[in-house]
Computed example of a mutant assay.
Amino acid sequence: MQSLWSSGGPTWDVPKGRKDGRVSKIIETLQLPAQTFNISQLQQSFAQRGLSLDDLVALSGGHTLGFAHCSSFQNRIHNFNSNQSVDPTLESSFAAGLKRACPTKNTAKNAGANLDSTPTTFDNRYYKLLLQGKSIFSSDQSLVTSAKSKALVSKFASSQQEFQKAFVKSMIKMSNINGGQEVRLNCRVVN
């Protein structure tokens, strides 16, 4: 076992022996779920990798950290559909802030928004914001569109401990997904 941790977040032991790839290929990132996926598409994508709805909701909590460029959520704040400019699932003042950060004719390459209001802290704020309609990606907001996933979001929003426990369990499960070529002697260096 090897202990891994995230900055300020939970720690967990990961079994040694996972096969890693030798090179990174951009084509492999196309297999990742898109930020525009609905709950059914997300569930299908995770199920193809042997991950459950519980894993989906827990691992989505990783969006408690980080930043999103305007291009990744522009579809929600400008010309959402033929009837509405803004995604109606967005809380109105939150949507207005996103529109200010990412105007229609945005030219700033680094413009965007934090994924949650504490982007450098591994906490359950992400789930609290989902329940308020303050998510950056429509795929995140879709987690509150089914009764079972919304119940998990609510559970994690009310308990940092439950979120971290589920996150660790799902990270360990995800680490067992096969697909690499070699077991590395040092995880940072190709053998």
Rank of each mutant, 00 (worst) to 15 (best):
A166Y: 11
K109A: 11
V57W: 14
L152E: 07
F73W: 11
S71T: 12
S60M: 10
F167P: 03
I77F: 03
L90N: 04
S158L: 10
K105H: 10
V144L: 11
L51W: 02
G50L: 06
L115Y: 04
G50D: 09
S93Q: 12
L98W: 02
A95N: 01
G133I: 03
V86C: 07
F156L: 05
E91P: 01
N114M: 08
A101C: 03
T89W: 02
D116E: 03
K105G: 08
K128Q: 15
S72I: 00
M171E: 03
I77M: 00
R125A: 09
S146R: 13
A95F: 00
A108F: 08
G112I: 00
V153T: 08
I77T: 02
N124A: 15
Q164R: 09
N114C: 06
L53F: 00
L53E: 13
H78C: 02
T64L: 05
N110Q: 10
T107H: 01
H78W: 12
A96Y: 03
E91W: 06
G133S: 09
S60K: 10
D116P: 04
F94S: 04
F122D: 11
F67W: 10
C102P: 06
F167Y: 15
G133E: 05
A108M: 08
L131N: 03
A95L: 04
T104F: 10
A111C: 00
K148A: 15
K150D: 02
K109S: 12
S92L: 09
V144Y: 10
N83I: 12
A96W: 01
S146P: 02
L115G: 04
S135G: 15
Q141K: 11
F122M: 14
N106M: 00
Q84R: 11
L130C: 04
F156V: 02
D54T: 14
T145N: 15
K134G: 00
H69I: 01
F94W: 07
C102T: 05
G112F: 03
Q161H: 15
E91M: 03
K165A: 15
N110L: 02
L115Q: 13
S93G: 04
Q160M: 07
S52I: 10
S139Q: 07
R100K: 14
Q74S: 02
S93Y: 02
A111Q: 00
K169R: 15
S93H: 04
D87E: 13
S82G: 06
G50R: 11
K165W: 06
K128D: 06
N81R: 10
F73Q: 10
N124K: 14
N83Y: 11
D116A: 05
H63Q: 12
S170N: 05
Q132D: 12
K165P: 12
G112E: 00
Y127L: 08
D54I: 09
S154A: 14
V153F: 09
V168Q: 13
Y126E: 12
L90I: 03
F163P: 09
A96I: 02
D116N: 09
S117H: 11
K128W: 09
Y126N: 13
G133Y: 07
N75L: 00
S138A: 15
K169P: 08
S158E: 13
G61Q: 11
S154V: 05
K155A: 06
S139C: 06
S117G: 12
F73C: 09
P88D: 03
A166E: 14
N81P: 09
Q74M: 04
Y127K: 08
Q141N: 12
S92W: 06
T107I: 04
V153K: 11
D55F: 01
E162D: 14
S82A: 13
R125W: 03
R100M: 02
L131T: 01
T121K: 14
